[in-house]
Design a protein around this nucleic acid. Structure first.
Lengths: 243, 243
DNA sequence: ACTTGAATATCGGTA
DNA sequence: TACCGATGTTCAAGT
């Protein structure tokens, strides 16, 4: 065992030793990782079974469990925040059992061999928070500050205006006084975004009155071919703009 | 330092020692983790900056980089598979630099202090592969085996039938010989799924002939209120069915 | 390489 | 809490 003031590491711990350590860490709400040969069973929204292999398991104080193999960005199995972990020994093997409710889900990890167990002291969220730029929110701000990026005479009147089909990103008027609905996307869009804009336009045409013509404009860096054809077919427009 | 046949652990390594170890692991394509006080900068599809705090960093042989805090299922920063890592020392601190192209993205992690460095021997994907049940694919299979789950007389004719708006999950005929389009969802659906089904129905009405009436049925465990109203408004139908 | 849609998507805002 | 849409979504399949 190697320990510093903060980190505790057990190499090849016995199942009993791992269980005792982990029971204590789980109790006090710590962050720990395991690495070793294990099987994983999941049952909940879906169900899956994973045969023996070497995996890296991380459990966070907030209840998150992540099982990673040597490939891929996504964990091969996981449990979301709010889950509750328990450890026990079955047939001489360490078993990590994670459950949550609503929906009911269970993840069971059975370790045939534990190569490594590490317990970390975190800063309890004391770390600085993340700020991201280049989002749809940035695109919206840009348009509100400079509406002529859409077209000359465009005047935004509201953001997140609610319709029976959901909230419109930007709602406004054009130079002629016609209602304009903007749907913003931070990246190249496909048919789904056209469908979304179309829903809003149809909902507003129904909600406002009959004679009222409503323009729908998709604002994004670019569109796919199919999305472009859908736009044309539905009488919607496109403005190229990036966040 | 603690080492077993497989796992190498360094506690509180110096920046130089960490750099040397990691350069070697990256070279041969190993899996390693770091834990310590660091800052993270990302620039690519978007951009972000993360001030000092204790984080857990994992680098996989496939080029994946994951930065986790003590909260949340998603890494706070990451780099996808295929990225290339390099280590260096700047102002006495270890810097892990990850880049990829197409799109150009860079992630830079600066360690003020390294509490823990672990190098793991993986089984190179030798582990058993995962199979998930309860997916949309399972729902499709169920309907093809037992079409009367949709309604008496329903006959599936094709899956993934292509239309100008995309591929239809299941395409078939009802007892009266009318064309039926099914859109399957493995879980409760909102307005987006209705829009998707609607696109397919409209595209087929245009693609086939004028007089031809086409039925669209959304198949899912349940629908939200708003989605239900949209279905009604568009003359589409709903069948409750779970994977 | 690009497009398209699924996913145990996850996450945050809002009603 | 449920709903709704954004996400540096990621991922796999088809073209």
């Amino acid at each position: 065992m190697t320990a510093t003031e903060e980190t505790v590491v057990l190499s090849e711990p016995s199942a009993a030793e791992a269980r005792d350590r982990l029971a204590s860490v789980i109790e006090r709400g710590g962050l720990f990782t395991l690495f070793g040969e294990c099987t994983v069973e999941y049952d909940g929204r879906a169900a899956s079974s994973l045969g023996p292999g070497r995996r890296h398991v991380m459990c966070k104080p907030d209840g998150t469990v992540l099982v990673h193999t040597d490939e891929g960005q996504k964990p091969i199995n996981w449990q979301p925040p709010g889950s509750r972990q328990a450890v026990r020994i079955e047939a001489g093997s360490l078993v990590l059992d994670s459950r949550r409710e609503n929906p009911d889900e269970e993840l069971v990890i059975r370790f045939e061999r534990i190569a490594h167990l590490a317990i970390f002291e975190t800063d309890g969220g004391g770390g600085a928070s993340l700020s991201v730029t280049g989002t749809e929110e940035d695109l919206k701000r840009r348009i509100l500050e400079e509406p002529e990026l859409i077209e000359a005479g465009f005047r935004p009147l509201a953001t997140e205006r609610s319709t029976p089909a959901g909230a419109v990103d930007i709602y406004g008027e054009d130079e002629e006084g016609r209602v304009v609905v903007l749907e913003l996307k931070r990246r190249r869009v496909g048919p789904d975004a056209v469908g979304q804009l179309s829903r809003y336009v149809e909902a507003l045409e129904r909600d406002l009155h009959a004679g009222c013509e409503i323009r729908g404009i998709l604002v994004a860096p670019s569109v796919t071919d199919r999305a472009h054809r859908l736009l044309t077919r539905k009488g919607l427009e496109f403005v190229a703009l990036s966040p």
